[in-house]
Nucleic acid binder design. Structure first.
Lengths: 141, 141
DNA sequence: TTTTTCTGTTTGACATATCAAACACCTGTC
DNA sequence: GACAGGTGTTTGATATGTCAAACAGAAAAA
């Protein structure tokens, strides 16, 4: 089959997703604005790499820049960041709270998978995790 | 932090994993042996790409070749293929049977994730899915 | 046997993602 | 104002993974 090629058909690569997540994280204290240097430091890669990567990310409409070369997520960028963060939180919570996977491993696994999980799976997982937590509450009373 | 770089630290890339899976699949009728052409056809990429990719995969000890350029998984290759197949089956079963995700979407999601799931998560997932299926049986009686 | 087709490899190209190093431009400090 | 340091970009390099096209050799068909 060719299902395996879907892997390359994701909206964002792992790298691009983490550039956006870093901007979101860094921007929190500065009205959403972040600098190339800080993104590079956050990701542990060089300023040069970030500069090049942002060119493509900007071209695709996920970030905007101002006259001082500050970087900010576009509405579209913010949307995908929020979706990814939701998926990560959900999946990690499933791993630790439902499966009992260690916190460290759950962090690694959910980070690898956060940008790959479909909307459908995400929704069903949300429903399931909520239901699970409710039933846990009930049983413990 | 730098957890995000773990993504690149996997034993196999998605592409390499699927080369191994294809060899395993094709080899079933020929004592494990497969041809470059058939692998390429199976994956939907060119013979040239497979030829180049196999060079690296062979160098890393996942496959062996004979004098007729036939390709076969090494014991190490077979081991990782089996681990990946187990993870995929498990995760897909979780998605469809537990979460109620559609078959098509479950196929796509599990294919994206099969080579990324840790051993720890895989084991806990196996335990959970088995338990879930048992409880389903009990309730339906 | 000759010719055609198929096979595996190689080459040159492109895309992504990284690095180090050089560069130009600011922004401080003295 | 000069000089030091930080910032963003660019360039040249490497690695992976893909393509198309050219090639040589093997197999199949005529």
């Amino acid at each position: 089959m060719e299902t395996w090629k879907e892997f390359e058909a994701n909206e964002l690569t792992h790298s691009a997703a983490h550039h956006l997540l870093a901007i979101h994280e860094l921007g929190e204290e500065y009205g959403g604005w972040a600098r190339v240097s800080d993104i590079a430091r956050e990701l542990g890669i060089t300023r040069g790499s970030v500069s090049i990567n942002l060119r493509a990310i900007k071209k695709r409409g996920y970030v905007v820049t101002d006259e001082h070369r500050m970087v900010k997520l576009s509405p579209k960028g913010l949307e995908v960041v929020q979706a990814i963060k939701t998926k990560k939180t959900l999946f990690k919570s499933f791993l630790t709270d439902v499966l009992g996977v260690s916190e460290q491993q759950a962090e690694i696994d959910s980070c690898k998978v956060e940008h790959l999980i479909s909307h459908e799976t995400s929704e069903q997982l949300a429903r399931f995790v909520e239901q699970f937590k409710n039933s846990q509450l009930t049983h413990s009373q």
